[in-house]
Computed example of a mutant assay.
Amino acid sequence: MKTCLVVDDSRVVRRVVRRILESLDFEVTEAGDGVVALAACEREMPDAILLDWNMPLLNGPDFLRELRRRPHGADPKVIFCTTQSELEDIVEAISIGANEYIMKPFDSEVIEEKLREVGLIAA
């Protein structure tokens, strides 16, 4: 079973994404900020990370930069799920190692398509 870490400071968003991912047969863990997310990755690196941009303590871009520097930190497919919608934000996300980008609000079809695009679910 594939694993996914959902990193978002909104409990509601984490709950919604968890339901979507579990319906796609992912084992899901959650983190409310980048610090907790890094600790979770230290324990066990997930196959995928759905990552919010704006969070307390350690935001999404800083989390991703730190993740990619760690052993096996290049392995997870990282998909930003955020309200940041400016082209320069998307360019920054991809340049620091994101595999895909979803703008909030999103639905299950968008998440499923992005997971397919990064190769985590079959076409």
Rank of each mutant, 00 (worst) to 15 (best):
86 E>F: 14
32 G>T: 10
18 R>Y: 00
30 E>F: 07
89 D>I: 02
106 F>M: 11
48 A>H: 02
21 L>G: 01
119 G>T: 06
92 E>C: 06
53 W>M: 09
120 L>C: 00
66 E>W: 05
5 L>P: 09
88 E>R: 13
73 G>S: 05
83 T>H: 12
53 W>R: 06
120 L>R: 07
21 L>R: 04
118 V>I: 08
114 K>M: 01
71 P>M: 10
85 S>F: 08
105 P>C: 11
43 R>A: 14
59 N>Y: 12
85 S>I: 05
107 D>I: 02
115 L>V: 00
118 V>K: 00
85 S>P: 11
86 E>H: 15
62 D>Y: 03
84 Q>E: 13
1 M>G: 02
86 E>V: 10
112 E>A: 05
92 E>G: 07
64 L>S: 08
114 K>I: 05
28 V>A: 03
105 P>F: 02
72 H>W: 15
63 F>M: 13
41 C>E: 05
64 L>G: 06
105 P>S: 08
19 R>C: 04
117 E>W: 01
33 D>V: 12
8 D>M: 09
8 D>Y: 07
33 D>Q: 07
41 C>T: 10
4 C>P: 01
117 E>D: 07
107 D>Q: 07
29 T>N: 08
33 D>F: 06
50 L>S: 10
26 F>G: 07
8 D>L: 05
17 V>C: 02
18 R>N: 01
28 V>N: 02
19 R>Y: 08
75 D>H: 11
4 C>W: 00
39 A>T: 13
26 F>M: 00
75 D>M: 12
100 E>S: 09
11 R>E: 14
75 D>Q: 15
